[in-house]
Design a protein around this nucleic acid. Structure first.
Lengths: 106, 106
DNA sequence: CTGTTTGGATACCATTTGGTTTCACATTAA
DNA sequence: TTAATGTGAAACCAAATGGTATCCAAACAG
């Protein structure tokens, strides 16, 4: 859905959320552990985690009374897909240039 | 302070701005031409262009009374750098994107 | 010169966002 | 059972965001 692309981009638009993603990339963490590393309340961190979850960038697993937040690499796919559009575009232009040069050589 | 990475991510967080970037990817356009393709006022489009410019994703060239908005592939570099830094799983795909941009810069 | 076209700037508005405080609930420990 | 721990949810707030309407300036066309 287009919404996933939008939610993913929105999730990455905040520096705190990008920091969270980087932290979770090296280790799964609970809200409490994350909150210890930020200068904000647990409620604020929770909101960020909700946005990240909406963006499909993290998943949450209940373990006892704890919630383990885990990064979901697949959630980055919509972002990369959108960026890949330019990869195609630039490749096309590069190919056109190459072809033009080759025609000139003949 | 607002880093270039933050400004670039922020610029891409809005769907209208991503649409603008895609439109400019295929053709340079004035603000008037862009406004014709959206259901919003010129002032609103102008604000989006300012955010895109702050993010380093576009450049503007004055030509007579017109201002030609042009995509700046280099502006995507901070985004790609961040994505590449945080997740090793996507290195291959991200490297292709980054190389395409670097080649075009030359 | 006189309009007309193209674009920027400002003031204003409603909604969203990022944060807080507070309270409630469930699970573990004593 | 009682207390402590880990979390979620709601109400609230200031600031940022995305939009509008309006006015103003510069460049082009007649």
């Amino acid at each position: 859905m287009h919404t996933q692309t939008q939610n993913a981009f929105r999730a990455l638009a905040d520096p705190t959320r990008r920091d969270i993603v980087q932290m979770l990339a090296s280790q799964d963490m609970t809200i409490g552990q994350l909150t210890d590393r930020f200068d904000m309340t647990r409620a604020a961190v929770k909101k960020h985690l909700t946005v990240l979850s909406d963006g499909g960038l993290i998943t949450v697993e209940a373990r006892g009374r704890e919630r383990v937040n885990r990064i979901d690499p697949q959630g980055m796919a919509p972002v990369l897909d959108w960026l890949r559009y330019f990869n195609q575009f630039w490749d096309d232009r590069l190919n056109s240039l190459k072809e033009a040069i080759e025609r000139k050589d003949k």
